[in-house]
């Protein structure tokens, strides 16, 4: 059922299983106990950073399938994406995985985009189980978007640290966490040109998607135990909080951001916080879903955010458009 911008899933669609695979730095962070696989090094035994990200993607997907008890032939299709040009991490990992594959790109909002599309496929009765995944790797992102790793430049305080992480979930007709609704985002461009301040570029999109969900979904923020954005980190999360306060709404303690949860900002030198497709995907699988299964969280709004720029558009002086997709998760019991 569609109401305004919100898709409500009438059939019972659940997260059957989930898994995450992360790099060394993420494995040393506060969520270390929640990850399924932590790499011994960020190369994951491969010769290039791109191959390493593929391996990490494949590992997370295989782990999710293994944990679910399903066989490969049960998986209807894989919907996934990453940050690299032409989405090579997803495509190259899918080459080895062998599933039907739909590659998607929503920058760091990719996990919610793939989950919304996966749930829609199951709702339509086209697939029974859909594997949704998103990944990012610090080293591949740095060399594509910024500087070589060994370059001795300093990062501004507003910059974020791209997570070396992949999260994968299997959607199906049984499970303990239900996907109740999705709100696909609209693209908003508040005119930010600073590529070292993605949080500011994406915050408005997060505010707009959440506002439309509260309006069209006829829900109030206080009806949710956790409202979590993807990777707005310190700057963007503060802006979202302020924008809602201007509306007279206090999100309060229930509001969080995956970029602030993945790393220990005091000890891990990540400046404003974490970012990347894998940031929200891994936090979902390592922290949010386990807490929902333990019934610590009953209803959660998972809202990954994406900065839709390319190195080319930034070099040409274009401002950075942002997007935010929302997934409403509920404890099934």
């Amino acid at each position: 059922m569609k109401k305004g911008d919100v898709w409500f899933f009438d059939k019972d669609i659940y997260i059957k299983e989930y898994a995450s695979c992360v790099g060394v730095k993420e494995g040393e962070g506060p969520l270390r106990d929640g990850f399924d696989v932590i790499g011994e090094d960020d190369r994951f035994g491969e010769s290039t950073w791109e191959k390493a990200e593929c391996r990490m993607f494949e590992t997370a997907c295989r782990k999710a399938v293994e944990k679910s008890g399903l066989s490969d032939s049960d998986i209807g299709c894989l919907i996934g994406g990453d940050l690299l040009n032409q989405c090579i991490s997803t495509s190259f990992a899918a080459r080895d995985l062998g599933f039907k594959t739909l590659g998607v790109y929503g920058a760091c909002s990719t996990m919610a985009e793939s989950m919304a599309l996966g749930a829609a496929l199951i709702e339509a009765g086209l697939e029974e189980y859909v594997l949704c995944a998103a990944s990012s790797h610090f080293c591949t992102a740095e060399r594509q978007y910024r500087y070589p790793l060994e370059y001795g430049g300093q990062r501004p305080q507003t910059s974020q640290w791209t997570a070396t992480a992949c999260g994968a979930v299997i959607l199906g007709k049984e499970g303990k966490v239900r996907i109740k609704a999705a709100c696909p985002g609209r693209v908003f461009d508040p005119g930010v040109r600073d590529v070292n301040n993605m949080g500011a570029a994406m915050a408005q999109a997060a505010y707009e998607t959440l506002s439309r969900y509260f309006k069209d979904g006829e829900k109030k923020p206080e009806e949710h135990d956790l409202i979590v954005t993807g990777d707005l980190s310190e700057v963007g999360a503060a802006i979202v909080d302020k924008l809602f306060r201007l509306d007279g709404v206090n999100l309060g303690e229930r509001y969080g951001d995956c970029g602030l949860m993945l790393f220990d900002r005091q000890k891990q030198d990540v400046h404003s916080g974490g970012s990347g497709c894998g940031c929200s995907a891994a936090v979902l699988c390592a922290r949010i879903l386990p807490r929902m299964i333990k019934h610590e969280l009953k209803r959660v709004l998972f809202c990954p955010t994406g900065a839709l720029l390319s190195p080319l558009s930034a070099a040409q002086g274009e401002s950075i458009p942002g997007i935010c997709h929302l997934i409403c998760l509920e404890d099934a019991e």
Binding site: Q157, T158, P190, A200, V235, A238, I239, K242, L243, S272
Partner: peptide
């Protein structure tokens, strides 16, 4: 707003 929230 974003300039105010961005630490120098």
């Amino acid at each position: 707003l974003w300039q105010k929230k961005s630490p120098p």
